[in-house]
Amino acid sequence: MKEQDESVLASTNITPLQQIMASSAGALLTSLFVTPLDVVKIRLQAQNRPFTKGKCFVYCNGLMDHLCVCENGNSKAWYKAPPRRFTGTADAFVQIVRNEGVRSLWSGLPPTLVMAIPATVIYFTCYDQLRDLLIHRVNNAETASLISGATARLGAVTLISPLELVRTKMQYRPLSYWELRQCIEISVANDGWLSLWRGWGPSVLRDVPFSAMYWYNYEFGRKWLCQRYNKLEPTVPISFTAGAMSGSIAAFVTLPFDVVKTRRQIELGELEAMNKSPKRSSSTWNMMMRIISENGFKGLYAGLLPRLMKVAPACAIMISTYEFWKAFFRKLNKERQLKAL
């Protein structure tokens, strides 16, 4: 009980503004580190299976998904053809930097930051606030983390979903703000306000269980590592390790929902690119059955290794950065209180 009280006290010493600053720093650093990995992955994919006009692919750097539509097969910044064929990941890094400059490794970073930072701020701040409220009531840090993680993610997905729809529509083709407004008004007139939350269901099925498992395992793993190494407070390496482990577990369990969401995004994107009205989307269960009938049960776990290679470092960098800045602000606030006394 004493340990829980100390944990809550440590968290409540951080103001909401400081939590926002800490989560923003984590989102920025994660985007900077993980974006080059996804740029290289997309280039290698395009080399092995060239994108045809109207074909969609999903760009994801561990924080946000971006649906991209191929216009002429070769002009998009994310998958320009190299002078010679890439022989592997390391060669792709070298060729991209040599031929296009270092900045090309961060293609697609601006839209990531526009969406990822607000979403991350809402999510992490709500999580901390909810956890502080629940931890005394449930009398268990892991359970409080599980409930808070699921609730915070549900709220963040619901709030961000309309903005994600707007961003996705702007990625299909260049739109002025007037055209975008018209597009949204037509969508609302035809299908109602709920059309702004299209895709909310698959996002919730993937992100809410992921978040619940992530925070539960992170809390458990962090506590276990602190006991193992006789630390009263988690250090950056402990937070990094616990974040990577918990992120990997959650990514593995929720991968089938991620496959369904990606498949649905691509199908809707290709219909939109051909100026066809999207059909009524099938349920998540029906989509799963279709994937199993086409590719077998292993089809639900397609792309497991790339997802783990992306999610594990993204989770580790995000949480360790967040915990580092929280510890920094906690120390700063304590020093200010001592000076005031």
Rank of each mutant, 00 (worst) to 15 (best):
T12P: 01
T12Q: 08
P16M: 09
A22T: 10
S31D: 05
L32G: 03
V34K: 00
P36K: 03
D38Y: 05
R49H: 14
F51M: 06
T52L: 13
M64G: 03
C68K: 09
C70I: 12
N72G: 08
A90L: 13
D91A: 10
Q95C: 06
I96N: 00
V97C: 06
R103H: 13
P110M: 01
A116F: 00
P118Y: 01
I122D: 02
A141C: 09
A150K: 02
A152S: 13
G155K: 01
R167I: 06
Y172P: 05
Y177A: 10
S187Y: 04
N190F: 04
L194F: 13
V208E: 02
V208L: 05
P209I: 13
P209K: 08
R222D: 07
Q227Y: 06
R228V: 08
S239D: 14
F240A: 13
S246Y: 01
G247P: 00
F257L: 07
D258H: 09
D258G: 11
R263G: 11
R264V: 13
E267W: 08
E270H: 11
A273G: 11
S282M: 12
S283G: 15
M287I: 15
M289G: 05
S293M: 08
K298I: 08
K310Q: 15
V311F: 05
A314K: 03
Y322I: 10
A327C: 11
F328E: 06
N333S: 08
L338Y: 06
L338D: 10
K339G: 05
